[in-house]
Structures are given as structure tokens and as C-alpha cells.
Amino acid sequence: MDYRKLLGKVESAVLPYFGGGTVDAPSRRLRVPQPVAPGWWRFEVKGREATAREPASPEGLEALPRVRGHLWGTRLVRDGAVAEPLALMPDEEPPRLSPVTARRWHDGTLLFEGVEFEGDAEETARRALEEDRPLGDARGVGASLRAAFGFAVLEAASRGTGIPFAPVEARARVLDVAQEGRAEAERCLRALAEERVRFLRMQVEREARREAEARAWTDRDHGTEAVWRDAEGREVARPLPGRERAQRESLHREEARVWDAHASSRTSGAWNGREPTRQERWRAESDVGARMERALEKAGARLLGHRRLGDGLLEVIYTFMGERFVTVVEAATLRVRDAGVCLAGADARVTLESLPSVLREAIDTDALVITRHA
């Protein structure tokens, strides 16, 4: 068999494109070297690359699983108060709280299909929303419509209070919000804000402890009874025993060596001390992006973008389970520095690849609190 002919084979496929550098075929993810506008396109597929050639009509939707729910903005809210983004919405926006159907694409994305016939319940919910009234015990209003109504009330309260929220953060209380109205929505948002403040306070204390420990490792009088305390007099660090100090210093030296090797391969080592060309910089950035993309893809997440923050850190933006997350990682190792969600100080114990499983557990147990909003 001549594998060169196989690798050079060109195929045609009609696929939904959602933006970014990839598109999902039924059996694999393909790279899109030249991004186009989101929509249905006829792609020319060669190897693992897909080039958009022309807009196309949807194909194969009837074979995909159908999902029903009610519309909240650009999300379909289904039973269980799960609010998933809808891709490729029509130019004409359907009425809010409409009953809609979608098809689930092979990568899990929901593709908008159409609006179903509605009854009195949808009009009842719209009137209550317009008049800023709770639904209370209104009859005939199903679970998905109640949840969509609750999210709409939370959205209005969020604009009024300036407290952002993600649907997965409020899912456990959204039916109470639909029942009680704006007052319950504001209580829910204030509880989220208090949890974020508590987390940020804990994060500041953790950074202070890390800095104090760093001073302890380099102090000439290391091994004395000196104790480092914060502004309120609480102990944050003390000198370490000799063996533990040596182990930590060795770990930090190894981390620095890994990062220096990574950085040098992108600068003087790879480019012999000269200023890299635009193409060489692009390749270096692409290498980092490819590593992050592979790590997230293994976990079922999709990379949206990233940017350098300095000190060997990267800010990574990605979607997972229908939500958008922002995480700060170390470029050399992809170890998490700031997960962007409350992990009770355990951020450094996970990597970009393992973080989505932690997010899934938090979402499934209604315990997710997002601290970095995109």
C-alpha cells in the first residue's frame, strides 16, 4: 500500500463550525488553518486539516439525539435546571422562554433546531417576567420552563446588583428563585459574592504564607526559633527542619530548571541568541497552544484561547460542560496556579488536564463557585 496516496487523499464533508482553530467531524477533531464565520460549511478534508470552501445547508441532523427544553437567551434549559449553550442560533431571535428543540452534535455541542408549539404556560411565565412577579404556584408550568424563568430573574438581579453568575453556580437554587422571585435571586447572588470574597481572602493568606516560607528558606539564620506572622499576628510560616528544607529547595531548583530549559528553547537556544522572526514566534506560540489543546481535549474540554502573563504563566480560556472557564497555569508544566474556581487552596495539586474532572464533580454536586469570570 502506498501510504503517501492515503495521506494525500482529499475528502469533502459538511460540518458545523463554531469558531476557533478546530472543527469536529463524527469520528475525529480536525484543525482549521483558516478560520471562517461560524455556521455550516462544506470542508475539504486532507489528513487532519479541514479547509472551509463554501457555506452549506445542514446535513445528518435527523440521526442525532434530540434535546428539548426552554429558551433563556442563547441557552436551552432542560430538566434538572441544566442550561446549555445553543450553537448556530437563527438570525431571527425566538421569543424568550420559547419551547425549543436542539440536536446534540458528536462533540456534545447543542445545535439549534427549531421552536415548538407553545401553550398558555409560556405566556404566563412571560407576563410574570415582564411584571417582575414570581411564578409562585402557577399551574401547568413545567420544570424546564420554571428553571428558564428563574435564570431570567437571576440575570435581571445580576444586572441590578453587579454580581455575575454562571448557571451552574445557581442551579441548585434556581427553582426557589422562580418560586419566590427577585428577593430570592438577590439572596442567591449575595451568597455567591460572599463565597468569592472568602475564597479571595484565603488566597491572599496563602500567598502571604508562600512568601514567608520563601523568606524562611533563604534566611541566613534558618533553623532558629523565628516565626513569620501576618499583619494580624497569626503565624504563617516557621523555619523548616534541614531535611525538609533541602527537599523543597531541590524541588524549586528543578522547577526553575524545567522552566529555564523551556524558555531557552524558545529564545537563544532555538534562535542562537538572535531576535526571532514573526514565523518563529508563531511556531513557539503554536507549540504551547497545541500542548494545552491536547491536555484539554483529553478531558473533554475545548480550548478557546490563551495569553502570556509573565513569570512563566499563561491565562487559558476554555469551555467545559457548557460553561466558560479562565485558569492560570505554569507554561512549562501546565500545573494550575489559579484554577479560576474555588478549590479550597488545592489549585497547585491539579494540572490543566486533571482540572476538568474536578470541575465536573463540583458541577454535579452543585458546589461550583467561579472566581475568575471571562
Rank of each mutant, 00 (worst) to 15 (best):
M1E: 06
Y3N: 07
K5L: 15
L6G: 01
L7W: 11
G8D: 14
G8Y: 09
V10G: 03
S12C: 06
A13E: 12
L15P: 03
P16T: 09
P33Y: 06
P35A: 08
P35G: 10
P38I: 04
W41F: 09
F43P: 08
E44R: 12
V45R: 03
G47C: 07
E49Q: 15
E49D: 12
A50W: 00
R53F: 04
R53I: 13
A56C: 11
S57M: 11
E59S: 14
E59T: 13
L61A: 10
R66P: 02
R66M: 12
H70M: 03
L71D: 00
L76N: 00
L76G: 01
R78M: 13
R78S: 14
D79S: 11
D79G: 10
D79C: 04
G80F: 09
A87R: 15
M89F: 10
D91V: 02
E92D: 15
E92M: 11
P94K: 05
P95E: 08
L97T: 01
S98C: 06
R103C: 03
W105G: 00
H106G: 02
L110V: 02
G119E: 03
A121W: 01
E122G: 00
A128K: 15
L129Q: 12
E131P: 01
R133Q: 15
A138W: 05
V141Y: 05
G142L: 05
F149G: 00
F151M: 08
V153G: 05
S158C: 10
A166R: 15
A166T: 14
V177W: 01
G181L: 03
E184A: 15
A185Q: 06
E186C: 06
E186P: 02
C188G: 02
L189F: 05
R190M: 07
A191T: 02
E195S: 13
R198H: 07
F199H: 09
V204S: 08
V204M: 11
E205I: 01
E205G: 13
A208D: 07
R210D: 08
E211S: 09
A212K: 05
A214N: 07
R215E: 13
A216K: 04
A226H: 12
W228N: 10
A231H: 13
E235V: 14
V236A: 05
R238A: 13
P239C: 11
L240H: 12
P241D: 15
R245S: 08
R245W: 08
E249Y: 04
S250L: 14
L251N: 05
E254S: 11
E254P: 00
E254R: 14
E255T: 01
A256H: 13
R257D: 07
R257I: 06
D260W: 14
S265G: 15
S265M: 13
A270H: 08
E275T: 15
R278A: 15
A290T: 10
L296S: 03
L296C: 08
E297N: 10
A299T: 01
R302D: 09
G305Q: 06
G305I: 09
L314K: 09
L314I: 15
Y318R: 03
T319N: 00
E323Q: 14
T327Q: 06
V328R: 10
A331H: 00
A331C: 01
A331G: 04
A332C: 11
A332I: 05
T333W: 11
R335S: 11
C342H: 13
A346P: 00
D347E: 12
D347L: 10
V350N: 04
P356V: 08
V358H: 11
I363R: 03
T365C: 01
